[in-house]
Write a protein that binds this DNA or RNA. Structure first.
Lengths: 203, 203
DNA sequence: ATGACCTTACTTAACGTTTGTTAAGGTGGC
DNA sequence: GCCACCTTAACAAACGTTAAGTAAGGTCAT
């Protein structure tokens, strides 16, 4: 073989492991996935993983960092602070719906962390990643309504969106009506309308 | 010992095991808790558990049934279908907030099931337990607003409440303002107000 | 260009522990 | 004597992790 057939074939085992491990941890949780499980998916031995990560905990942490980095920060970048708060609301909702809908691992790991995360890790994650977007959301929430606490409102907005994805697997059993596909736009519109009629009315 | 000192001291090992295992599964998840962990908490040997349950899976399922039974059904009973929908909304929200706030295991196991539950178990749980309350909520939601899909609205209501509890552990790191205690009434009022101003306005 | 040397990336084997589960037997109330 | 209820001991498998060795490739003085 003279030179690599595929031009950019240097998968960098490290990030390849992260990539393979991410959906596994998302689907089965930390203690539901063994190092041997991961090694099988990657196609190496279990011991090889220890060449790249000191132990399982640190591998998991690296997965978290890999998943959350950038993506969460992009929320604050996607908001145009100069536009009227109503527009910012619409912007945020459609952006966040797309984020949660397209990245199953991100949403699942986020919810797992809220369930399983010890205090120290939750504090770290929150301060390093969540505070920024949260403040940005609360900021335009404050301009939307003087009636509600903007911080509670921000939590409500996020929860509203996430729960529609969380309940997606049981939706078809909940109501016998032939539901349409789990359409992002359906959720996006529903949430936007609910929030804007809640906040637009009694400002 | 002539007769039992404490009058009703017949703990019925079976339900005692369930009682001890419930918060453990809620906190650590299915694969995070071993049969020996449970046996230690109960105060017996691990093998003793197999006298009451055929295996770990069935023990877990019994825990689920034990936790969800009654409590979830009570939601539909707590609703007075004859009162105006606005009152039903207030009733439901305060009842559901109390339920989620007072029973940590219930909420946590519910969320774990939505994350981990295989299709078959989710279908079973939904049809046997969730459909009733869900229809009841959707029913008064339909009378509240003709604008939104009542089924999506019902999901929104539940998600709104649950997420405020889900994010409770990171709340203090999210905003530096000295938050009050995680007050049920605070959440209850916030959600009720948000929903009623959303739905009362453009009926 | 060669050999010595180092680093990187992996391998197979094995360690001690924990896992779910079973077998075999004992004890106390009916 | 029987049955509900528990015990201790053990099983094979899977767990996280480590040890030791090897093959490939780059570096560098000679």
């Amino acid at each position: 073989m003279p030179h690599s057939a595929t031009p950019t074939k240097r998968p960098n085992a490290y990030s390849n492991i992260l990539q393979k491990a991410t959906p596994m941890f998302a689907a089965q949780g930390y203690s539901g996935v063994s190092m041997r499980d991961i090694s099988k998916k990657v196609g190496t031995s279990a011991a090889a993983l220890y060449h790249h990560f000191p132990n399982k905990q640190r591998l998991y942490l690296a997965v978290m960092e890999h998943v959350f980095a950038d993506k969460v920060e992009n929320i604050v970048n996607s908001l145009d602070r100069t536009s009227p708060p109503q527009n910012q609301l619409t912007q945020f909702v459609s952006h966040f719906v797309a984020l949660m809908g397209n990245d199953l691992s991100l949403r699942t790991l986020l919810q797992r962390e809220l369930l399983d995360g010890d205090e120290a890790r939750l504090k770290l994650l929150t301060e390093r990643l969540f505070v920024g977007p949260f403040e940005a959301i609360a900021s335009f929430a404050k301009n939307l309504s003087s009636k509600s606490d903007p911080y509670m409102l921000a939590i409500s907005m996020v929860g509203l969106i996430i729960f529609h994805f969380e309940t997606a697997p049981i939706r078809e059993y909940l109501s016998d009506s032939d539901r349409p596909e789990n359409d992002f736009e359906l959720i996006s519109n529903h949430v936007t309308q609910l929030l804007s009629s809640a906040l637009g009315a009694n400002q």
